[in-house]
């Protein structure tokens, strides 16, 4: 009886694993199958054709995503790393640091659509129009907590002796933090930033009413701009088969970018996060 239960439990666990892995494989299969057949040069070089016409590409959306993500990184990464440095180097064990840590974790769980509304209220309302900048702000805010927590984790892994050695040599503490601690932990910090980047790269909801999307060329920060995830959404719910085709292709491109960065992160992390220390 007991061995029977044991076998049943094992079987159930294996079954659960198969059931979880199955949709993943199905998703990847469909992405590659539908996406690869729709990818061509036009996808990367042309802008969308008017509705109902066959062909066209997503060059403007690719550039638009790059612009928005660049703004997001400029906002999110420095603030995030700064916050992480504070938590790891100055705030250890203080109540303030615990509050920051908790707030960051909670902020991490705030739905992305709420971030979109916040950016709408903060940027779009005062400026009276949608803009690439507003989209960047929304994504940048979302990057801050992730970067802060991962930077802190990585800095905490730097052995204390390294800091003491630097201070003992008369290096000022701010320089010791930047040139010794942060540098030692830099591979880990970079991976953290890339994870945050990959996470916001696929976000659609915060862009819906900040960047809005655009069917034409635009790189102006002050105007509506297209983005890959937005374009996938618009095309997925459109009635035209050719637009569905483009949506699959765009999804494949997006997924390849994200999977590549996640795989790279795992590779770097597996190689030993701290090259100088430990």
């Amino acid at each position: 009886m007991r061995t029977a239960t044991d076998h049943a439990a094992t079987a159930l666990a294996i079954l659960a694993t198969i059931l979880v892995v199955a949709p993943l494989i199905a998703i990847f299969f469909y992405l590659v199958y539908k996406g690869a057949s729709s990818l061509n040069l036009a996808f990367f070089t042309q802008i969308p054709k008017p509705e109902g016409e066959v062909g066209g590409g997503m060059a403007n959306a690719i550039i638009g995503s790059a612009v928005i993500l660049a703004i997001a990184s400029v906002i999110g990464i420095p603030i995030g790393i700064g916050g992480g440095i504070y938590l790891a180097e100055y705030g250890r064990g203080t109540k303030l640091a615990n509050a920051v840590r908790f707030t960051a974790d909670v902020l991490n769980g705030v739905p992305s659509i709420v971030m979109g509304i916040a950016a709408y209220a903060l940027v779009v309302v005062p400026m009276h129009h949608f803009s690439a900048f507003a989209g960047g702000v929304a994504l940048g805010i979302m990057m801050i907590p992730t970067v802060t927590r991962s930077t802190e984790e990585m800095l905490l892994m730097v052995p204390h002796a390294v800091r003491e050695a630097a201070l003992g040599l008369g290096v000022p503490s701010w320089r010791s933090v930047l040139a010794i601690t942060l540098k030692t932990a830099s591979p880990g910090v970079v991976t953290g930033c890339m994870l945050a980047f990959a996470r916001v790269a696929g976000e659609t909801a915060p862009l819906l009413f900040t960047a809005l999307g655009n069917q034409f060329w635009s790189v102006s920060l002050n105007r509506e701009i297209a983005a890959l995830p937005l374009q996938i959404y618009i095309y997925a719910i459109s009635p035209y088969d050719d637009q569905h085709r483009l949506a699959w292709a765009a999804s494949l491109v997006l997924i390849v970018l994200i999977v590549l960065s996640v795989a790279l992160v795992r590779y770097v992390a597996g190689r030993g996060v701290l090259k100088g220390a430990s």
């Binding site: 949709p23 997925a236 997006l254």
Partner: peptide, 24 residues
């Protein structure tokens, strides 16, 4: 590999899940 796969599942953007859901 399995841990990596489950991690990948977390990295897929919501809109791609949506696209897959609509058509598959």
């Amino acid at each position: 590999p399995l841990a990596f796969l489950t991690e990948l599942l977390a990295a897929i953007p919501s809109v791609v899940y949506g696209l897959w859901a609509v058509f598959v």
